[in-house]
Amino acid sequence: MAATGDTRYEELSVEAADIRPHETTWQRVKKSGSVRLGGAALAVLLLIAAAAPWLGTVDPTMFDAGSRDLVPGKAGEMMTLDGDLLRHTFWFGSDSLGRDIYSRVIYGTRVSLFVGVVVALLSLVGGILLGLVAGYIRWLDGVIMRVMDGIMAIPAILIAIALVAMWRPSLSTVIIAIAIPEIPRVTRLVRSLVLTIREEPYVEAAISLGSSTPKIMFGHILPNTIAPLVVQGTFICAAAILIEAILSFLGVGLPPEIPTWGNIMAEGRIAFNEYPHTVFIPGIFLTVTVLAVNILGDGLRDTLDPKMAKRI
């Protein structure tokens, strides 16, 4: 056992990275099972979000007192705003106000994915700007990084909750409130990358040729930080979807009439004993979505950023 064990551990460093030089990065990414699995699941979810109105849904905010607390699969009637009576099958049942849970869950996909992607982009932009400045303009480094340390000392969910409470909840305030506590991590990453890259000969060459500081930062340094940032962005997207759901679930996020998975679950917890599906169905969608993004992120990390893959 011991002998075979040893060689196995020694091979580890080679095995974990597994890079063949003749392959392009894109070929490696495409071959990764995790990227394929996570990407495919995410593609399906994006399709659901885009096609929400044509998937047999009704207006997710429409309610009918006559169709309250229906179990999944039961048919019932709904009065539309125009006064028409609509026959509708409640595939996932209805909630205590008589809203169609299926429609709410399907439309909820839109909110979750939108929040995830926009938060990831916002915090990447914020983190890149701050990180480039901290890493390249040395006298600002101390100030920026101390502020980042301070933000990181406050748990992300608490910052988000407090900010939303100050600003009153809406889609834009929720997105900004979730993005702010994610910025320090990106800033740290970009700064550390910049500190390594700025010592490279091509940066020195650019300085010697008299390139301006913004040109060096955005033209020479930034392109070389892309791979780890894509990976980081994916993980932020997953975290943002989770935090949005938590805010809604706690009742401090988006207003309750907006169909989000967290809101559906918050509504469903009142009658959880009798109708557990109201909590579980959006919970499954939420878990699958976050899982898909995380698996995609793992795959991207292993293929785009092998150095990081070896560390974790």
Binding site: I246, G283, I284
Partner: peptide, 21 residues
């Protein structure tokens, strides 16, 4: 990976439903 992805309240309600109810 699953543990990172499943929200705390989903785990909570699953356990409440299964173990308590």
């Amino acid at each position: 990976v699953f543990g990172f992805s499943v929200p705390v309240f989903v785990v909570g309600y699953l356990l409440v439903w299964l173990v308590s109810l």
